[in-house]
Amino acid sequence: MPTPESNTLKSQYAEKVTADLERNTAEQERIRTEIASLEEQLSGLEQDHELLVGMRAALGGTATVPTPRGSGRKTGTRVRSTPAKAAGKKVTVKTASATKSASAKKSASAKKTSGAKSAPAGEKPRALGDLIHEHLSVDLEPRTAGEIARALTTAHPHRNISDNLVRTTTERLVARGQVERAKQGSTVYYTASTRDDSATTAAPADKEPASADA
């Protein structure tokens, strides 16, 4: 049977436990209130951070933007999208579009340049020697190899005609008697030959290779 002393101790312990429970409950309520307030502050700071990042991107900033630690946490607060974030996405899309457009223009330009050296469809390439002899026969004025090359390049833009190639080919025509050469100082001039037997002096071995003027 409990004694009065034991009942007194039990009552004291009960009062102490009740007081501890009240303090514990009050402390929980205080911490929950602080957490709610801090979460609200943090949510506002996160929205401000996204707004500032979007404005930095729209202004063309290149500096590294620090990422807050714990930004991937899950909370009960829903963070809405900001106009600045959407603006940053538009800037990225616009830059990618401009890059793609520049690449397309560069590709088209390269195709146009490579096509300029191709012979027109259906046209049979003529030997460079024939073109040189025809040009000198029509021009009748003494011309240097460089002048002949420039004239033929203008008349036949699809051909790859260089000064050295024209000089070599014209010297072959001189050896065949189809072209005459005259030297004035250090400059060599060429004119079409007026001899009647020029066509008979050519030998098969001296014919210009088909690929020489390609």
Rank of each mutant, 00 (worst) to 15 (best):
A26L: 09
E34C: 05
N160D: 15
S103I: 05
E46T: 15
S101L: 13
K117Y: 10
S114G: 12
Q184A: 13
A26N: 14
T169F: 01
K85L: 07
K90R: 06
A182E: 15
K111C: 07
R167K: 15
T82F: 03
T8Q: 12
A108M: 07
R176L: 03
T113N: 15
V79P: 00
T191L: 05
K90F: 08
R32S: 13
Y13F: 15
L52D: 11
S11G: 09
R126P: 00
T62A: 11
T25Q: 15
K90S: 05
L128F: 09
A36H: 10
E34H: 07
T75E: 02
T187R: 11
R56D: 01
T154W: 09
T18E: 13
A86V: 13
K89D: 08
P83K: 08
L9N: 06
P83I: 02
D213G: 02
S43P: 00
G88W: 08
I161H: 09
V65M: 12
E34K: 08
H49F: 15
P4L: 10
P204T: 12
L51C: 09
D196P: 01
G185N: 03
T187Y: 00
L173A: 04
K106P: 00
T168C: 06
A210N: 12
T170I: 03
T170P: 03
R159E: 10
R56E: 02
V188G: 03
V93T: 05
A87K: 10
V53S: 07
K105D: 03
A58S: 12
K105T: 14
P83G: 04
A192D: 02
R23C: 05
I31M: 13
A145P: 04
T3F: 05
T191C: 03
E208M: 14
V17Y: 10
E208Y: 00
S71L: 15
E141V: 05
V65F: 15
R78Y: 00
T3H: 05
G72S: 13
Y13G: 02
E34D: 09
S186H: 10
P204E: 06
A110F: 01
E141G: 03
A151M: 02
T64Q: 12
V174I: 09
R30Q: 15
G70R: 12
R80Y: 00
S43V: 09
I31P: 03
H156A: 01
L52M: 14
S118T: 11
L131E: 08
L128C: 08
V179W: 02
S81P: 10
A57H: 04
G76S: 10
E147Y: 02
T170L: 01
G146H: 12
S71H: 10
A121F: 01
E123F: 00
E134W: 04
R23S: 13
Y190M: 01
D206N: 13
